[in-house]
């Protein structure tokens, strides 16, 4: 996952929306683990569009 930290509000919206428990908000840094199945939920629900899939 790619995070644009200039947009990120550290709000935890992505963390709580993840069905795979693949995201952890470690202070101001989002950590993604291998459970991520690229479902794009977090990307869609981010209120400011800070997330995208890495190409």
């Amino acid at each position: 996952m790619k995070v644009v930290y200039e947009k990120c509000l550290h709000c935890g919206c992505c963390v709580g929306s993840c069905k795979q428990n693949a995201i952890y908000l470690n202070d101001y840094i989002l950590e993604f683990n291998d459970a991520c199945n690229r479902c794009r939920r977090c990307i869609k629900i981010c209120p400011v569009g800070a997330l995208s899939l890495e190409e």
């Binding site: 869609k44 209120p47 400011v48 569009g49 995208s52």
Partner: peptide
């Protein structure tokens, strides 16, 4: 609502 969010930044 989450299912209406399409591409990110919908709330904004």
């Amino acid at each position: 609502q989450g299912s209406k969010c399409k591409s990110g930044a919908d709330a904004k």
